[in-house]
Design a protein around this nucleic acid. Sequence first.
DNA 1: CGACTCCTTGAGCAGCTTCAATCGATGTGG
DNA 2: CCACATCGATTGAAGCTGCTCAAGGAGTCG
Lengths: 223, 223
Amino acid sequence: MYITLSAETRPDPGPLTHDAANRMRPATLLKQGRHLFHEGDEVERIYQVKTGVVRLTRMLEDGRRQVIAFGYPGDIIGFPADGCHHTDCEALVDTTLNVFRRTALDHGDGDPELHVALLKAALKEISEMQDHVMMLGRKSASERVASFLAVITQRYGEKMGSHRRISLPMPRSDIADFLGLTTETVSRAFSALRNEGVIALNGAQTIIVMESARLQQLALGDD
Amino acid sequence: MYITLSAETRPDPGPLTHDAANRMRPATLLKQGRHLFHEGDEVERIYQVKTGVVRLTRMLEDGRRQVIAFGYPGDIIGFPADGCHHTDCEALVDTTLNVFRRTALDHGDGDPELHVALLKAALKEISEMQDHVMMLGRKSASERVASFLAVITQRYGEKMGSHRRISLPMPRSDIADFLGLTTETVSRAFSALRNEGVIALNGAQTIIVMESARLQQLALGDD
DNA sequence: CGACTCCTTGAGCAGCTTCAATCGATGTGG
DNA sequence: CCACATCGATTGAAGCTGCTCAAGGAGTCG
């Protein structure tokens, strides 16, 4: 999950293709808090999130942390670069994953459709990452938070009459490390949105988006 | 070109593979200042920079700009997402490019090696982009500038005794938009490095790196 | 030489971070 | 069932980093 605002809804988060589904190993369960892999591990498998949410992080020597992405259902996780993982991956909630062999990237495991699908997924990831770069490089704190909420709402929000409800499985610190901010700044931005009536908070995890159009405006700096 | 610090030197920036080279169209020339494509254009071809340097940018409605990447020799440019370009691409100097059909992504244009090579290039781009995200999200201005110079030095610096020389084909404003800073901040960071004897400036475009080890320390926040 | 563009430097300001205290939800033991 | 401990979230106050605005310098091209 990166910060991409687009009009179209998310494609079916099911298996890559019917054929691809036939080739993959049975889904595995990753319990909340458990790591799927660590930075530096050799890449042996590639995963697609089936249900749940995972977090991809990278660290600097001195402990500064960046959340690279959140993996939501349908997202492909664990693309290798020179053979090893460059992020840690941890489950934010109990998560099930479809598993593919790494070799599927080289020759598609005899399944050209799978190969093409993986390439497509990689291209989508590049594009979404570009949005994330734009956000980190050029958007203000409040714009970043609005962007984050707008994307989650658009992709994963449940309709509730004219409103939408989203649940945030990650703590504020993960959101902060994703957006390049501190937890305090994220919290203040949430409060500001609440005070303006754009969102309502129901505990820290559940958010009612009252004015999603306004949220998208704010995400683009249209204030 | 993203901000990746790694020990190994850059692989041969020649054509993807011998076979792939045979399949591609003859190299084209893109004069300095000319656009290869614009944001929103339909993707018809994919390019590999042969000589020269290009700049990939993305804009926000209100004019804020982010340089997503610089394309140096060997880099693949123009990966599509839902069929169209999401960045502008402009040549910073006269540039030659190898050209591939977009369909090479779908079925390799009958060349499986090419298909694999493109996928590999996409995976590398994802990894480098992750470094860029880490930098924008968590590094200070001086660390970003040091990272930028360290990478350029490592990959493209010419040896000059114990020093290395690099030439920066892009103006300060492009560096600033790449690093998520302003030109003034970039300029100040350059001056600080000069005052500390880490680099020497020979005009604005040519830089002598006196202490590249120190530069890499600074890039990682080891000050 | 003069005009232009880009780069550098300075001064003041704003936004975000840091540090610190409080609040609120959750869970545990008495 | 309540008191209390714990952890995350929120809010406040002060400080710092990087931005804005402005002026001057350096290289380039007519």
